[in-house]
């Protein structure tokens, strides 16, 4: 790990100013991604500004939404009763997302900012990585690529965004509140991440010194059901091969309204809008579920190692749609 200066300011403004003033400075929160990257030598900040004690921890429950402090841990959010009742798929994604040890450390803000697990990205001795160093190529495309993305990618980069909880948060149209050098702004998650095929070296729209302070999560209205299905090789403690976050409002055996997010497939957490549109207002029909999945995956870019993900994602979504619509039939 490269030597760095450690600061722990007391206020958000101070932290933002401190990072903004130094191009080689960065925020440190839960550290679960950052320390790993620093040890790998992929990320070498000269100054770490520890924000983990800033007053950005806690959950405010309002009638229509949760205001989640960015430093709230995954474990704290999963333990919130309203999340279990009104955002079941968020809770399930949190619990499936990491071990208890990591959930006790990792913050929600940090989770949204997690870097890809691509081993080529994480090994600085691999020269070809467009994400790490622009225009250097992509070793993963010709390499071992099982845990890589198939949506929002092209031959320049197939890095996966491996977050679980970001998938239902995107589906439920959460937004982040950002404090930066030029003040505060709100960014919907749908506009937060940048797809690899839109520029592999840029991961999100935050600028240097921008700090997520809060995540606003709309509650699903009464009468909605939601759930998160994660498919992986191991029974626990593994990133998703594919996952599906589905929230649905049923009217008899009719899908009145629906939100779908897919994980394990995209360079960014993936909202399946085509599938939502195909299913909204239709009767429960597994054939149509599969068609909706196929439509979502139609734009997939695959390499030999990731080809299976197209079919698996369709099946994962179909299964979760069946599960979510079953009980109301």
């Amino acid at each position: 790990m490269r030597a760095f200066v450690y600061d722990r300011p007391d206020a958000v403004d101070e932290a933002v100013a401190s990072v903004a003033a130094d191009p080689q400075a960065a925020f440190l929160a839960g550290g679960t991604t950052q320390l790993d990257l620093m040890k790998d030598g992929v990320w070498t900040p000269d100054r770490l500004v520890d924000i983990s004690r800033l007053p950005l921890r806690g959950i405010l429950v309002e009638s229509q939404q949760l205001k989640v402090g960015a430093l709230t841990t995954m474990e704290q959010l999963a333990a919130e009763p309203v999340v279990a009742q009104r955002l079941t798929f968020v809770r399930e994604a949190l619990l499936a997302g990491a071990t208890v040890q990591l959930r006790n450390m990792a913050t929600i803000g940090g989770n949204l900012l997690q870097r890809t697990r691509c081993r080529y990205f994480r090994d600085p001795t691999v020269a070809a990585c467009n994400r790490r160093s622009p225009d250097s190529g992509c070793a993963a495309v010709d390499g071992v690529a099982r845990m890589h993305a198939v949506l929002g990618v092209d031959e320049r980069c197939i890095a996966l965004h491996a977050s679980d909880v970001a998938v239902p948060l995107l589906a439920v149209e959460a937004s982040v509140l950002v404090s930066g050098p030029s003040g505060q702004r709100r960014i919907p998650l749908s506009e937060f991440w940048v797809r690899a095929d839109e520029g592999p070296s840029i991961e999100n729209v935050l600028g240097h010194g921008d700090l997520i302070t809060e995540i606003d999560v709309p509650l699903l209205p009464q009468g909605w059901r939601s759930g998160y299905l994660k498919v992986r090789d191991r029974a626990s403690y593994e990133f998703a091969l594919t996952s599906a976050a589905v929230a649905v409002q049923m009217d008899g055996d009719m899908i009145a309204d629906i939100r779908i997010g897919l994980g394990g497939v995209g360079s960014v957490p993936w909202r399946a809008r085509e599938a939502e549109e195909m299913l909204r207002g239709t009767h429960v029909d597994p054939v149509r579920f599969e068609q909706a999945g196929r439509a979502t995956m139609a734009s997939a870019f695959t390499v030999p190692g990731t080809a299976f993900k197209v079919d698996l994602a369709v099946r994962t979504l179909s299964r979760q749609l069946i599960t979510m619509t079953e009980a109301t039939r």
């Binding site: 450690y6 550290g31 320390l35 520890d50 474990e75 006790n104 450390m105």
Partner: peptide
């Protein structure tokens, strides 16, 4: 794995300063 303020964490991904 150790406990920090009673919660289990992995001590390899936490700075001593934290």
């Amino acid at each position: 794995t150790v406990h920090v303020d009673g919660a289990r964490v992995v001590s390899c991904l936490m700075l001593a300063a934290q």
